[in-house]
């Protein structure tokens, strides 16, 4: 595996405003790289550096063997054809039909008409909109518009697809459809995808890796599972909590404390077979009566992830011994106070 996109120490300023502040990020060929952050974190600027719609103030950007950040505009235009892009507001040409929209990049590339028509038909078939070829964009639903956007982005058989908040204007069900389509684009066509979003659910559905951005920096970047299971920054933890509701909020802890007199602990569920049985044995061995009061286990990247909160009843010393024993076997335990 090699990196298709390499972003090296890139900064971007607009006057005094700093949009990107020393960002380094590699995107492996064939993967879906999620980039999550709140608005203003610099995600949209970052994605526009990759196809040269914006130029970095400093630092370098490579796509394949080409240094995007060093190429003159004319050369960039040729390369942009090999990089697809889709947008939050779809940005379809209202003056053209669905087929006309998909054909546009091919017209720009000077593909002959017959070949163009053939490819447009194939692309519309791929996104399931062949019967809408002669409709105009305003006759389509949001999800259909984005599928046209995807077909247009794929027109020139790119290796790389940039998705800038591609599902943020869609309802949850349509979002799932569009994400499923992007997943097919990645798996069936082998495209590398850079997925910019503020929705952790989108990342969870299709990303292989996720970078978390805040204040123009990438503050965390790792495999999907690792970031979900063990986020290392508060921002990443906040995003994870928008999807996984397995840890009690301070309010919940206060309510639990009121109804359960003993110690409250939260245990992270690792990807380890028989973990909960292992826990039960540990409680029993220390003569502790446990009661499961909060938590849940879900799946990320086809592996279990979650947290369980227990109310413990037993001798103070026995509880202390239990916590030590658990930590010795690499169990991630938090005492809720």
């Amino acid at each position: 595996m090699s990196a298709l996109v390499r972003i090296q120490e890139v900064s971007k300023r607009y006057g005094d405003a700093v949009a990107l502040d020393g960002v380094t990020l590699d995107v492996e060929e064939g993967t879906v790289q999620g980039v999550i952050g709140y608005s203003g974190a610099g995600k949209s600027t970052l994605v526009r550096l990759i196809n040269g719609l914006e130029r970095p103030t400093s630092g370098r950007v490579f796509v394949g063997e080409h240094e995007i950040s060093a190429l003159p505009e004319r050369r960039l235009r040729e390369l942009r054809g090999g990089i697809g892009m889709i947008f939050q507001q779809f940005n379809l040409f209202r003056s053209r039909t669905v087929a006309g929209n998909v054909a546009y990049p091919l017209t720009v590339a000077g593909v002959p008409r017959e070949e163009r028509d053939r490819r447009v038909a194939r692309l519309l078939d791929f996104v399931g909109l062949l019967d809408r070829a002669h409709h105009h964009p305003e006759q389509l639903s949001g999800g259909q518009k984005q599928r046209v956007g995807i077909a247009r982005a794929l027109a020139r058989d790119p290796r790389l697809l940039l998705a800038d908040e591609a599902t943020s204007a869609l309802d949850p069900e349509t979002t799932a459809d569009v994400l499923a389509l992007l997943d097919r684009v990645n798996r069936e066509l082998g495209l590398t995808i850079v997925l910019i979003t503020h929705e952790m659910e989108a990342i969870r559905s299709i990303a292989d890796r996720v970078a978390v951005m805040e204040g123009g920096r990438v503050i965390e970047n790792g495999d999907l599972y690792d970031v979900f299971a063990t986020p290392t920054t508060p921002a990443a933890a906040r995003f994870v909590r928008t999807v996984l509701h397995d840890r009690p909020s301070p309010d919940t802890v206060a309510r639990l404390r009121a109804s359960h007199p003993g110690r409250l602990i939260t245990v992270r569920v690792p990807d380890r077979k028989g973990f909960t049985a292992e826990l039960s044995r540990a409680f029993a061995a220390h003569g502790i009566a446990e009661q499961l009061v909060f938590g849940g286990i879900s799946e990320i990247a086809e592996r279990p992830v979650g947290a369980l909160t227990y109310a413990l009843e037993g001798q103070e010393a026995a509880v202390r011994d239990l916590l030590e024993a658990l930590r010795r076997t690499d169990v991630d335990v938090v005492e809720e106070d």
Partner: peptide
């Protein structure tokens, strides 16, 4: 955004004016 989509498709400014901006 529509103009940006045309840029992202590799079109130059004069082509964008004629084929996107005016239409």
């Amino acid at each position: 955004g529509v103009l940006e989509a045309a840029r992202a498709a590799g079109a130059g400014p004069l082509r964008i004016i004629a084929t996107v901006l005016i239409p």
